[in-house]
Design a protein around this nucleic acid. Structure first.
Length: 296
DNA sequence: TCCCAGGTAGATC
DNA sequence: GATCTACATGGG
């Protein structure tokens, strides 16, 4: 990896195992706007920047080398060796070959805790484009204006204080339906500091995954699936294996002879099969299987 | 009109 | 314990 700067744009060359579109569009992130095949505006942590990825060159526009090394590298998880992860998974299970080959540019992003918690509570029983629309509406209504790119205005994800000030009816106006009381409760806990990303650390060490799951599922409206997504996409629990309708179908198709199988059985199987790398396996499978409509 | 969506809580067996 | 159902909203 090689980082240089040119006219306020930062260029990263020679990144292995990375594709911008695959990473943004695999369902882990809701805050991006597509301008071209490998050309996006990405909104994260109060920033909104245009990013392109052509000819193995990642270009982040209107930024500084400092902000790239201090934020964007970590955000896209670019300092991790995905070659080793793929080798580990393929050694364990050759059936992952198709997914890993086809989706070899996926990286698991490190997104903000509050944003992931709120976004994935919204996500339940909804389709991805609709989730994206509601999150955008939330940011436009309660976030801060950041900048305008190509005529489009971009807004930050609302702060804890702003979230906590949204009433249950305020949530309903965002068309979240029956999730309104869940979002209200979660926002109160975020606003009061009762739950924050710090809740998952003990002496600077991530607490046990089981304990993290307990903390998250103590929030009404957060079950195992949403908790897994928050753990995987925001907190760094790379063993987390979120089981939604898609991954359930895909796993049944690939490992259970197409037979209806309970989520508990699938979770145990994934734990044994992929171990500490469950989250990576899940993203490769989810992205590949969903594109191919596996099991549908 | 009916069915489904990156599910979960509460009821029921 | 494991399974069944209601829950808002939008899209196919």
């Amino acid at each position: 990896m090689n980082i240089t700067s040119e006219n306020n744009n930062v260029i990263i060359k020679n990144i292995e195992d990375f594709d911008l579109a695959q990473t943004l569009e695999c369902g882990q992130c809701f805050r991006f706007h597509k301008l071209g095949s490998e050309d996006f505006v990405v909104i994260a942590s109060g920033r909104a920047v245009r990013i392109t990825h052509y000819d193995n060159k990642l270009v982040i526009y209107n930024t500084t080398v400092d902000d790239v090394t201090n934020f964007w590298i970590q955000y896209f998880d670019l300092d991790r060796d995905y070659g080793a992860i793929k080798t580990f998974l393929l050694d364990k299970d050759a059936r992952l070959e198709g997914s890993i080959k086809e989706k070899s540019g996926i990286r698991i992003m490190n997104q903000q805790f509050d944003e992931m918690l709120i976004s994935f509570i919204i996500s339940q029983n909804k389709q991805i484009p609709h989730i994206k629309k509601i999150v955008e509406q939330l940011c436009e209504t309660y976030g801060d204006y950041i900048t305008t790119i190509e005529g489009q205005k971009y807004y930050s994800f609302p702060s804890n204080e702003k979230l906590a000030a949204i009433t249950e009816d305020g949530w309903r106006e965002l068309k979240v339906g029956f999730r309104a009381p869940y979002l209200y409760e979660a926002s109160q806990k975020l606003g009061s500091g009762q739950i924050s990303s710090n809740s998952f650390y003990n002496k600077e060490q991530l607490i046990d995954a089981h304990d993290a799951n307990q903390i998250l599922t103590s929030i009404k409206g957060v079950g195992d699936k949403v908790a897994s997504c928050v753990m995987l996409f925001a907190l760094g629990y790379r063993s987390a294996f979120p089981i939604d309708v898609w991954i359930k179908r895909i796993m049944e198709y690939m490992y259970f002879d197409g037979k209806d199988t309970s989520k508990n059985v699938i979770a145990d199987f994934a734990q044994k099969q992929y171990g500490e790398y469950g989250g990576y396996a899940q993203q490769y499978l989810f992205s590949f299987g969903r594109e191919l409509q596996l099991g549908k």
